[in-house]
Amino acid sequence: MADNRGRAVTIDPRTRIFFLLIGNLFIVFAPTQAVEAGFVLFFLLAAVVLGAAPQALKTAAAYLLLIVLQAFSAGWTRMWWGMMLFTFSQFMTMVLPYALLAVILVSTTKVSEFMEALYRLRVSKKLVIPFAVMIRYAPAVLQEFAMIRDAMRMRGISPSLFGFVRRPLETVECFYVPMLMSAARVADELSAAAVARGIESKARRTCLVPMRFGIADFAFLALLVAVLVVEIVINITAPI
């Protein structure tokens, strides 16, 4: 079912995929940090419009915090900790816009919509299925890490560097065995579920969510392409 709650404008999933790709290029070609911050602001606005307001707020807070940290530590770069903080905040502000784009796509697009969009873009099944499963399962892997760590503590095995140095092989086993066992089990269960739902069928896949390129999609894409062209032209004519 199409879930349009909290979403002011419905935009085709394909448009959202293009938004991710073109947004990446925006940041790659951004000449100054002010321009980059402007793009981040634009992404945040787009996130709110697309219905990812909570994620956008969190990212905005993190971005602001990092910029403050950067400004603060810029005066202390002679000290080693100042330099570490400074380079750390720089690295994070470099990565954050890309992360924001990915978060917008993943949090506003259901896996079924995403798969349908990729199929319509003529992407091979051999890439779409693993990629969709990967996006779905990666957050669960992180949760599992935390659970395995707790379980190791309960059994008196220290999941820290110290524990690793003292008993390397045991610690490594206690970490990998549950993680890979559960991955193997999840793979089997997901396959069984997907086969039962006809993933192996040769027939064309259908999707309950209507997927159509509307005026909003064309307008949004045109805006993105126009901005990108302007940005690249400025970059070529006025090298920094």
């Binding site: 693993p130 499963v133 996006i135 399962y137 892997v141 993680m179 991955a183 999840v186 793979a187 396959s191």
Partner: peptide, 10 residues
Amino acid sequence: LITIGVFSAV
């Protein structure tokens, strides 16, 4: 393909 996806996530 699903197995590849799960292990790629890991």
